[in-house]
């Protein structure tokens, strides 16, 4: 048990440290953003990459970067640092978001994780609406007055209770979080939402529904 735990702990440390190290050294697997788009465009232009230019550093981009590095006498570590970027003739803006969320401000990232955990598969407007409900709660006297306080209130969100909040959000969720933070509120100030197909609380069901988006009723 003990050695197992130690190995697990070591793995965890490495898992957390990797994105940070990659962030410091350059753009690598799991990164997103404008730098990745630059890299993909250049690799595609030069025939190393056949995938789509989507700004997501996935396995296709990784293989292409390694191939490029091998052919250009660079260390084939799959990370685009200063040397690889120079060989590609591009400048990194360091504005890319790593998988850990660096580059996206902490609150946007946290909100994006709730939106993704609670509302992936919902229409975009419904995802912004989930973010807006969180922020409306922060502004309401009856709820905690921080985003983290609202999100981690026990039982407030299923995605927090069942751990889905820890999934890495997709770009849509991050955009929805940013739109909600910028003031978009498709719910007109709602504080609650529920799925009428699964909700059981009489208190909740007694509240007047203001609008429905996708599977959720907002009130």
């Amino acid at each position: 048990m003990r050695p197992l735990k130690r190995t697990a702990a070591a793995l965890l440390v490495i898992a957390f440290a990797l994105p940070v190290l990659a962030g410091a050294a350059g753009v690598g697997y799991g990164a997103k953003g404008e730098d990745v788009i630059k890299i993909q465009k250049r690799l595609k232009q030069w025939g190393y990459y056949n995938g789509s230019v989507d700004g997501m550093f996935g396995s296709g981009t990784l293989a292409a970067v390694k191939n490029f590095q091998r052919k250009n006498g660079l260390t084939a570590d799959g990370i685009v640092g200063k040397k690889t970027a120079a060989a590609m003739g591009i400048t990194l803006s360091s504005g890319s978001t790593q998988a850990s969320g660096s580059g996206t401000s902490g609150e946007v990232w946290l909100l994006a994780r709730v939106i993704y955990g609670e509302g992936r598969g919902e229409p975009y407007k419904g995802q912004v609406a989930i973010g807006a409900v969180v922020l409306n709660r922060v502004r309401s006297a009856s709820f905690p007055n921080t985003i983290a306080g609202v999100i981690y209130q026990r039982g407030a969100f299923d995605a927090v209770s069942d751990g889905q909040i820890n999934l890495a959000p997709d770009e849509n969720a991050v955009r929805a979080a940013r739109d909600a933070m910028n003031g978009w509120d498709p719910t007109g100030g709602c504080l609650y939402y529920y799925n009428p197909a699964t909700a059981t609380s009489r208190w909740m069901l007694s509240r007047p529904v203001r609008l429905r988006i996708g599977r959720h009723a907002f009130c």
Partner: peptide
């Protein structure tokens, strides 16, 4: 139950 449960 965050919302007080079905009986609330």
């Amino acid at each position: 139950d965050y919302y007080g449960g079905p009986e609330a």
